[in-house]
Design a binder for these strands. Structure first.
Length: 645
RNA sequence: CGGGACGUAGCGCAGCCUGGUAGCGCACUUGCUUGGGGUGCAAGGGGUCGCGAGUUCAAAUCUCGCCGUCCCGACCA
């Protein structure tokens, strides 16, 4: 299912209300501003903004290069960054927006980053999470870890404190540092080992209540990202092998991203790669040969699909691709550590030019992981050599045993495998496949007629250009960054950790939970990725470290200097965050720096002061206009307001 | 975890192949100059050449080990 992101609230409400709303916002802004940032006018000559002409050689993606060049961040180690003055200001502004919006629906907590092992044992995740979790020992040798996410800790509070349905629903959130020992930190702030996350958790009596909490988060997230000036899409996401019913991701398209988003421009369908489906164009089947029964053909040394197709003069789409896996049981590393990891054979058939989406497969067969079969396993299940394996002659597990991990219920025939037929093969006839015999393939093979399977399902990855499942138009695939994720958790944690409340009837029930995350630094990164050029980047005033930079183009000129100073003070008085570039530098240097560091508006104070004019430059378009000095405060305030989140 | 590359001044790099005690641009300091898109001139300061062993009269340079960082892949509850 697809839910299109709602329009920004400021676009959908009447202008009078909008003005009122912004008035309130700026009042709040003034209040919180005065609390958290005592000065709103800073002199460049006095603050630390170490801009660089060149990016470090290590940096690859635009946001990384620019964050370093603009003096926002400095690297301490792989995936570990220090935030300097500008970087911290931008982060704090993002956090302020997140907090303002989250406070409308929930309550802010602050949980420990340092967690004892026990609580993670209870949910089973001490073992499940594996190497991604930073672990340490205290002086007594007790195991601790650094928080990775906080479902366990929040659920612990819930189970100790929540007793009655009257206390529900609850939405609790925090803005906290998370630690993940990423196998490969990369792309600047995009994939790091320490980062700031807003994580929220909801507790409801029933699924209907969860729907409400989930929807509140959906709307809140849209407001947050709108206010941050991001262009994003909301996509249906894979909920993970660990359960959960529904989940959606908020994505910003950028080549720097690591996730793939499948979307349709025609109707708005969007989903991530693990969830996306498509309509494939009809394929012309081969004509049967002979009596139409499978026919052995000699294909010496032609194991790979491409080789076979070329050898036989057919297209890969006439071929059945065979992929043989051993699937591994979920939960083997549970809290009791009960049992070893079980494995069962899962064999997939799909069109020769299609590829398996392992995440879809995992979900289908309820496995934690799959690995390719080894040569001797291939021999066992196919009774033929790798490269020439195919569907005929397999022992097939019945559909009832799909996802069955109780080995006692497995078929007596230890060759029996779960056989999955990709839906793309349904209706196809007279295909080519491996014969389970060295150097031989089969012709005239029709799924369902010539071989059985456990189940037919969608387990392939969508390719760009295939038909949208909703409207049939060509699908596109873009890379994107995930900036937020909302997730119906269900009962996983409340059940496993024993959270119970009494319902109306005095009956003990587990609350149903949701969890909802936003990556603070990823908002900054995504914003830069979507708004940059060769000279730098620009942020929405809502998240920029300053609303405006006032450049005195010649600090040696008394008149220019004092006008710049007065303008800066005036803007500060109007509640704007102002950076006054009072350095004794050449104008060119100041313009380059101003363009680099992400500030949305610039005022050039120069020769035209004699005509009572200064120049206002929008960083996003580089459009400039002359404005009367007497009108500058009002002019800038309006500009910031129009573009404010 | 598999594959690849790199590590020399704050940043970007040369020097390494062929061993002889470290250099360029930017940045920084001082002075003059210039003043609307990284001004010009002059004089300066700054480097355990990632770390540790080894070879050698002599190691940034050759050898071995380690550490770190980045890229591709795998992985990403």
């Amino acid at each position: 299912m697809y839910i299109s992101p709602p329009k920004s609230p400021r676009l959908s409400v009447p202008s009078r209300q909008s003005a009122l709303w912004h008035h309130l916002q700026s009042s709040i802004r003034l209040l919180t501003g005065s609390l958290t940032m005592l000065r709103t006018m800073h002199r460049w000559s006095e603050v630390f903004i170490p801009t660089l002409r060149e990016a470090p050689a290590d940096a690859e993606v635009a946001s990384h290069k620019l964050l370093v060049r603009a003096g926002y961040i400095r690297q301490l180690g792989a995936g570990i960054y220090s935030f300097l003055f500008l970087g911290n200001r931008a982060s704090q502004k993002i956090i302020r927006i997140v907090r303002e919006e989250m406070d409308k629906i929930g309550q802010e907590f602050y949980l420990p980053a340092l967690n004892p092992r026990d609580i993670w044992e209870e949910s089973g995740r001490w073992a499940v999470i594996g190497e991604s979790m930073f672990r340490l020992k205290d002086r007594k040798g007790a195991d601790l870890c650094l928080g990775f996410t906080h479902e366990e800790i929040m659920t612990d509070i819930a189970r100790k404190e929540l007793r009655s349905y009257k206390q529900l629903p609850q939405i609790w959130y925090q803005i906290q540092t998370k630690f993940r020992d990423e196998p490969r930190p990369k792309s600047g702030l995009l994939r790091v080992r320490q980062f700031t996350m807003k994580d929220a958790y909801s507790f409801d009596m029933d699924a209907a209540g969860l729907d409400v909490s989930y929807q509140k988060h959906y709307e809140t997230y849209c407001r947050i990202f709108d206010r941050c000036g991001l262009k994003y899409v909301v996509i249906d996401a894979h909920s993970g092998a660990m359960g959960g019913t529904k989940s959606q991701e908020f994505m910003v398209r950028t080549p720097a991203g690591e996730d793939q988003v499948v979307s349709c421009e025609a109707c708005g369908y969007a989903a991530n790669m693990e969830k996306a489906t498509s309509k494939v164009a009809p394929v012309e089947d081969l004509q049967p040969e002979g009596d139409g029964k499978p026919l052995l053909i000699h294909t010496p040394g032609k194991g790979a699909i491409a080789d076979v197709a070329a050898f036989l003069g057919i297209a890969a789409e006439q071929d059945i691709k065979t992929v043989a896996y051993m699937a591994q049981s979920p939960g083997a590393a549970g809290k009791t550590g009960a049992g070893k990891t079980l494995e069962q054979p899962v064999i997939v058939f799909l069109r020769g030019d299609h590829s398996v989406n392992e995440t879809k497969l995992l979900t289908l067969v309820k496995a934690a992981n799959v690995r390719p079969m080894q040569a001797e396993e291939v021999e066992k299940y196919f009774q033929g050599p790798g490269g020439f394996i195919g569907p005929i002659g397999l022992a097939v597990r019945p559909k009832e045993l799909l996802g069955e991990w109780d080995a006692k219920k497995w078929p007596a025939d230890d060759r029996a495998a779960t056989v999955v037929l990709d839906e793309g093969l349904l209706g196809r006839v007279n295909m080519i496949c491996g014969a389970n015999k060295l150097d031989y393939h089969l012709k005239n093979v029709t799924p369902g007629k010539d071989f059985e399977y456990t189940i037919a399902a969608d387990i392939r990855s969508v390719n760009a250009g295939e038909g949208c499942p909703q409207c049939g138009a060509a699908l596109g695939i873009d890379t994107a960054v995930e900036i937020g994720h909302i997730f119906k958790l269900g009962y996983k944690y409340s059940e496993s950790m024993g959270a119970r409340v009494l319902d109306r009837n005095g009956k003990e029930v587990a609350p149903i939970m949701g969890s909802y995350g936003i990556g603070i630094e990823r908002i900054l990164t995504a914003a830069i990725e979507q708004s940059n050029d060769a000279n730098g980047f620009w942020l929405a005033p809502s998240i920029a470290p300053f609303d405006v930079v006032v450049v005195s183009t010649n600090s040696g000129d008394e008149k220019i200097r004092t006008v710049a100073e007065d303008i800066a003070k005036g803007l500060e008085g109007a509640g704007l965050d102002v950076l006054l570039d009072d350095r004794d530098e050449r104008p060119g240097v100041k313009f380059k720096d101003a363009d680099l560091i992400g500030i949305p508006f610039r005022i050039n104070v120069g020769k035209k002061v004699t005509e009572d004019l200064v120049e206002v430059v929008r960083r996003s378009t580089l459009a400039r206009e002359d404005v009367k000095i007497s009108a500058i405060t009002e002019h800038l305030s309006a500009l910031v307001r129009e573009n404010a989140g």
